[in-house]
């Protein structure tokens, strides 16, 4: 039996100021899939990812989650989705641990594994320092530390490797590999190639 794909999108189109950004995008993400969105700057990668999270409404096209149209089951979808956007969405006056704590009120999160997740991304010694004092790369790691805690099936990551050093890239690859092995799926945008097996690519024409 071949179960319905986790996320399927058909004929997605988006317009900005009446100028089409992309049209007719189709694709499907199945359990264990990693889909990389490629495209020049301004091609609409961030827009596409935000359409997939439901934050943006497409001009045309449809989204299906586990084989059923999304509009009817948005909250179920959101409970299984983890989105790490362009801006990390962290409060600068709070420490990484405090930031993960408030996120834990909004999303399903394994709070008891917080220390392990922070350590895994090399944030152990930074866990209780206000985020305002952390570098851009460390902030990105804090945002990504939410992923192994979330238990979400689908990860949507916008430029997860921005500002991250070589060790960090390896840690992110390890995160994705484990998620893949657990049957999760990832959609991400990046200009870098990841050292992961079976990464599929979707290129946006500029």
């Amino acid at each position: 039996m071949s179960p319905a794909p986790l996320l399927e999108f058909r004929d997605l189109a988006f317009e900005r100021n009446d100028v089409p950004l992309f049209t007719g995008l189709c694709g499907a993400v199945r359990s264990g899939d990693i889909l990389q969105i490629l495209g020049a700057n301004g091609a609409g990668k961030t827009t596409l990812l935000r359409v997939l999270t439901t934050a943006l409404t497409p001009a045309a096209g449809s989204l299906c989650w586990r084989g059923r149209p999304l509009p009817g089951q948005r909250s179920r979808y959101l409970a299984e989705l983890a989105f790490v956007g362009h801006t990390p969405g962290l409060k600068r006056a709070l420490s990484p641990r405090e930031n993960l704590r408030w996120l834990g009120g909004l999303f399903p999160l394994h709070r008891e594994r917080m220390d392990a997740a922070l350590a895994m991304l090399g944030l152990g010694e930074w866990a209780d320092i206000p985020c305002a004092q952390l570098s851009a790369g460390l902030l990105r790691r804090v945002a990504l530390a939410r992923l192994p805690l979330s238990g979400a099936t689908l990860w949507i990551l916008d430029e997860p490797l921005t500002a991250i050093d070589r060790d960090g890239t390896a840690q992110v690859e390890e995160l994705l590999r484990r998620h893949q092995a657990d049957g999760g799926a990832v959609v991400f945008s990046s200009h870098q190639a990841l050292a992961l097996p079976g990464v599929r690519q979707l290129a946006l024409a500029g």
Binding site: A55, L78, L81
Partner: peptide, 8 residues
């Protein structure tokens, strides 16, 4: 964005 995409 977290608030809007929260299942809450």
């Amino acid at each position: 964005e977290h608030l809007v995409l929260s299942p809450q």
